[in-house]
Design a protein around this nucleic acid. Structure first.
Length: 442
RNA sequence: UCCUCGGUAGCUCAAUAGGUAGAGCGGGUGGCUGUUAACCACUAGGUCGCAGGUUCGAGUCCUGCCCGGGGAGCCA
């Protein structure tokens, strides 16, 4: 197991983390944590302790324990404690070691903990998200999230990308302003919470070549499905001199890197989440590439009546992903269903050079990407066609005047990707405090 | 915004054809030398989402509203 230093200080000589028990077998140690569960059997009490690094069973025997045995026997769940005792190998204890307690201080005797050992409904759990985060399953998901984000950053840094932090308040909208959260910005009027950092990344490539951003993104879509949050995290990459094909190759390498490293490092957590990782092991370049036109053919064969020109719906995506055992790119969508900044297809002006990446097993879209329109006149026309205000895009149009180059980029949704990796039914469990249509508490 | 399902004890749910509101978990009390969401016994706990209506009688039927789940559209 990978041990990280979670201690800021160490006032007790023999204080250690539960995760470090294998190094302290036979020794007397002190741990600080919470009572995750408790059982007793007359003369023996078993406390399941959690300290942030792991869990272990602590055993307190009435005959030998010097402290207030009866109080400990009834200690409410989630009470905070400092326990000292000898570390003993014990196969019946989670983690393989148990603590034979000889001293136990109660830091705080908990009130009755709302989240019990049996099932709860989503409404109750989400209202108690601040407490739900202590559950083994939620702890596992947060660990996988941490690993995923770490590998995302690692990939970009090892591939010579520079991190660019893009603004949260924006006046230039990436797509349709009806889906933006707006707010009053002093005397300047309306400003919006960012729904993408892409336009700003495009400005940065001229100085730095390859750049990425990772941050929260906001969508005021009134959608409540297992795939939607109003606040979610997105990582975006933008590369100068990358054409459409280069963009897809980078994306397959990127997704492969983050998936393979995360499942390798987080095998224990994924087991806890009962995720069968065999399908994830197949994630390797090349991914399948299906054009929008081919996708329509497939869908028509499967009985869909989708017309050319409309976007793929959730059901359509599910049909396609179920036919493939690896992620699938859907390329070259009709221009009219995509954003104004996507580059027109050189041979088919009614289409754009773009691709969405659909994750298998029914998880659907995790990446949206495209080559960007680098021609000033074509871009200006798109802005007009989509009835956007060209004045607000002055700076963005400028980028096509001073050494414009072919360039491409993509954005990957952290929560959807994590949901796929963890095999979850809903993205709400992938973020510590989910923001949804009817939920902004806690 | 639309479609659909639901709201009964702290939590998860049950309540047959309208006829005295139940269980498991959690809480309390007691028991058990090693347990694995431990177990056993006893016990407390309810404005049946809210407001009207039908009825001798409504958790159950009707109307409106509120809150939530799932989905559509839209998207990562």
């Amino acid at each position: 197991m990978l041990l990280r230093n979670r201690r800021a200080w160490s006032p007790c000589m023999n204080e250690c983390l539960i995760a470090e028990f294998p190094l302290h077998e036979g020794k007397t140690v002190t741990i600080k944590g919470w009572v995750a569960n408790r059982r007793s059997s007359g003369k023996v009490s078993f406390l399941i302790l959690r300290d942030g690094s792991g869990i272990c069973q602590a055993i307190v025997e009435r005959e030998t324990f010097a402290g207030p045995y009866e109080e400990i026997k009834k200690l409410p769940l989630e009470s905070s404690v400092i326990a000292s005792g000898r570390v003993v190998a014990e196969s019946r204890s989670p983690g393989g070691f148990e603590l034979h307690v000889d001293g136990l201080d109660i830091v705080q005797k908990s009130e009755e903990f709302p989240i019990g050992k049996k099932e709860h409904g989503p409404d109750f759990l989400l209202n108690n998200r601040h407490l739900w985060l202590r559950s083994p399953r939620q702890i596992a998901i947060m660990r996988v999230r941490d690993a995923l984000v770490r590998h995302v950053r690692e990939f970009f840094h090892t591939n010579n990308f520079t991190l660019i932090d893009t603004p949260i308040f924006t006046t230039t909208v990436g797509e349709d302003s009806s889906n933006l959260f707006s707010l009053d910005y002093f005397d300047l009027g309306k400003t919006y919470l960012s729904q993408t950092g892409q336009l700003y990344l495009e400005a940065a490539i001229f100085g730095l070549g390859k750049v990425f951003c990772l941050g929260p993104t906001f969508r005021a879509e009134r959608s409540k499905t297992r795939r939607h949050l109003t606040e979610f995290w997105m990582v975006e990459g933008e590369m100068a001199f990358f054409e459409h094909k280069d963009n897809l190759e980078l994306q397959e390498n990127f997704v492969t890197y983050i998936v393979q490293n995360t499942i390798r490092e987080m095998a224990d957590e994924l087991t806890k989440l009962e995720r069968d990782i065999e399908p994830l092991k197949k994630v390797a370049p090349p991914f399948y590439r299906v054009s929008y036109d081919e996708a329509l053919e497939i869908l028509h064969k499967e009985g869909s009546d989708i017309q050319w020109g409309s976007d793929l719906g959730g059901d359509d995506e599910t049909i396609i992903t179920n036919l493939f055992d690896k992620p699938v790119f859907i390329e070259n969508y009709p221009k009219k269903v995509k954003a104004f900044y996507m580059k027109q297809h050189p041979e088919r002006p009614e289409c754009v050079l773009c691709a969405d990446l659909l994750a298998p097993e029914g998880y659907g879209e995790i990446i949206g990407g495209s080559q960007r329109e680098d021609n000033y006149d074509v871009l200006l026309k798109s802005i007009h066609d989509q009835k956007l205000d060209p004045e607000r895009y002055g700076w963005y149009l400028d980028l096509r005047k001073y050494g414009s180059v072919p360039h491409s980029g993509f954005g990957l949704g952290i929560e959807r990707t994590l949901s796929w990796i963890c095999g979850l039914k809903h993205v709400r469990e992938t973020i510590p405090f989910p923001r949804m249509l009817y939920r902004a508490y806690p």
